[in-house]
């Protein structure tokens, strides 16, 4: 086995030998299941007439868009979870001083970081599958009971599901990049939560006000991710917003992960371990 693959195997064992990854997976599943189930019931109820449109049902998405919207919650809402997992995988090494045995076992620091990026990309995909089990599994079930076609037979739906898994994997890689750039665990968590829950949504909304900023706004990581997945409540709430092609969105997200990781490598990863 090459040194790189051995390092990937070691990084994989690091993640599976502590509890954080399945705690995150569990919370992610619960959160997305409740959200997908609840909104499927609300919009499904509006469309089926069980809930009157006077109750705000006027805002409901057109029936054809509903399943894609619900399914995309996996990434459009759940993406903060793989970011946290990726960031914690790096900041934990600094916090618990495990960089010492890590670099003693493998003194090639660049290889260790590349292996970590690869491994967390994989775990991001796993979280993607978990999130989709919640959004598609629960969402389709609830929509079905309200007579909305969950369109599970359509290849478009499965393409969306595949792109969502890819988006979640890329988000975990972004988390690794963030963690290595800001190795302080508390600072990283604060940045992740503030950026994903507050700063970016505001920036995306603000960027839609003028054409010039809209062109820039679509390069924000959340916008790129939504473009990659192909549907989100954001694109329905602000239908005028310009979006990237799905593959462009994927490349932009990948670029965030790589650029953050490379800068982090240069700034913190090569430092003295004392």
């Amino acid at each position: 086995m090459s040194g790189y693959l051995r390092s990937v195997a070691a990084e994989f064992t690091k993640v599976t030998s502590t509890r954080i990854w399945w705690v995150i997976a569990l919370v992610l599943f619960g959160y997305i299941a409740v959200l997908a189930g609840g909104l499927s019931a609300l919009f499904g109820g509006v469309q089926s007439g069980a809930i009157g449109s006077s109750m705000g049902g006027g805002q409901a998405p057109p029936p054809a868009q509903l399943p894609a919207l619900i399914y995309s919650f996996a990434s459009s809402v759940g993406y903060v979870f793989p970011v946290l997992l990726g960031a914690l995988a790096v900041t934990g090494e600094f916090r618990h001083q495990t960089l010492t045995p890590t670099f003693l076992a493998v003194p090639r620091r660049g290889r260790v970081l590349a292996a970590k990026l690869t491994t967390l990309f994989g775990f991001g995909a796993v979280l993607g599958v978990v999130a989709l089990l919640a959004s598609v599994g629960v969402g389709a079930l609830v929509m079905g009971t309200f007579g909305v076609d969950p369109v599970l037979g359509e290849s478009d739906t499965w393409a969306l599901i595949g792109r969502s898994v890819l988006a979640m994997a890329l988000w975990a890689a972004v988390g690794v990049g963030l963690g290595v750039l800001v190795p302080n665990q508390v600072a990283t968590i604060v940045i992740v939560l503030a950026f994903t829950q507050f700063i970016e949504p505001l920036l995306r909304l603000a960027s839609t006000f003028t054409d010039a900023t809209a062109g820039i706004g679509r390069f924000l990581p959340g916008a790129a991710s939504d473009a990659l997945v192909g549907a989100s409540f954001f694109s329905i709430a602000a239908p005028g917003a310009s979006v990237l092609e799905w593959w462009q969105g994927g490349l932009v997200l990948l670029a965030y992960a790589v650029v953050l990781t490379v800068i982090g490598y240069l700034v913190t990863w090569r430092r003295d371990v004392t």
Binding site: A10, K14, Q97
Partner: peptide, 27 residues
């Protein structure tokens, strides 16, 4: 082989897994 004074362990990992991680990395 080296042992440095700082406690460099993830508290949530077992001793066996701690050693496994680095044995795997070092082949």
């Amino acid at each position: 082989g080296s042992a440095l004074e700082a406690a460099s362990f993830h508290p949530g990992r077992t001793a066996r897994n701690h050693l496994r991680v680095y044995a795997i990395g070092a082949g």
